[in-house]
């Protein structure tokens, strides 16, 4: 029952990405091309989603716990550091090159298009490489301080 409800939340997100046209890299990229054929749809998607999420979060967080878990698990990191800015900057370069972001590429897999599978494969490779680099860095820091 709990997993069916979560499946439906995923389906609603995927349908929203699909209906809004955000599965289409051409549409996403045209939002960022102010100097070309500008398509403002992405801004409407983000502002609407943000407004609904902000209102809904406020209501849900009044409760002491979610329905199917003992407590809320909100991100706890607070630091605004070089890793955050560098990571976000790199993400944007990749998004601008490919036209896909993770939240759009996962639903887009359902269209069966080979480009989406290529993007998602490269995305996963990049995620594992970043984790490996972060582990390497942590090991090196530990060795230096020892």
């Amino acid at each position: 029952m709990h997993l069916v409800a979560i499946y439906l939340a995923g389906l609603l997100f995927g349908l929203g990405i699909s209906i809004s046209g955000m599965v289409n890299p051409a549409k996403t990229l045209n939002f960022f091309d102010v100097a070309g054929g500008w398509d403002a749809s992405l801004a409407v998607v983000m502002v609407t989603a943000l407004a609904v999420a902000a209102g809904g979060y406020r209501l849900v967080l009044r409760r002491s716990a979610p329905l199917f878990a003992p407590r809320f698990q909100l991100p706890t990191a607070r630091a605004i550091d070089a890793r955050l800015v560098l990571g976000a900057g790199l993400f944007g370069i990749g998004w601008g090159m490919s036209g896909f972001c993770p939240g759009a590429s996962l639903p887009a897999l359902g269209t069966g298009r080979v480009e989406v599978f290529a993007f998602t494969g490269a995305l996963v490779a990049g995620m594992f490489t970043a984790r490996w680099l972060m582990r390497l860095n942590a090991t090196r820091a530990a060795t230096v301080s020892a």
Partner: peptide, 29 residues
């Protein structure tokens, strides 16, 4: 829904890899 990719295949691959690096370092997308 239409999925139109206006860039070369290598840009999809390199872009995807950079997105993977970036969202992991930046902890989100």
């Amino acid at each position: 829904p239409p999925v139109e990719v206006p860039v070369a295949p290598w840009m999809v691959l390199v872009g995807g890899f950079l997105v993977g690096l970036g969202v992991t370092f930046g902890a989100g997308c």
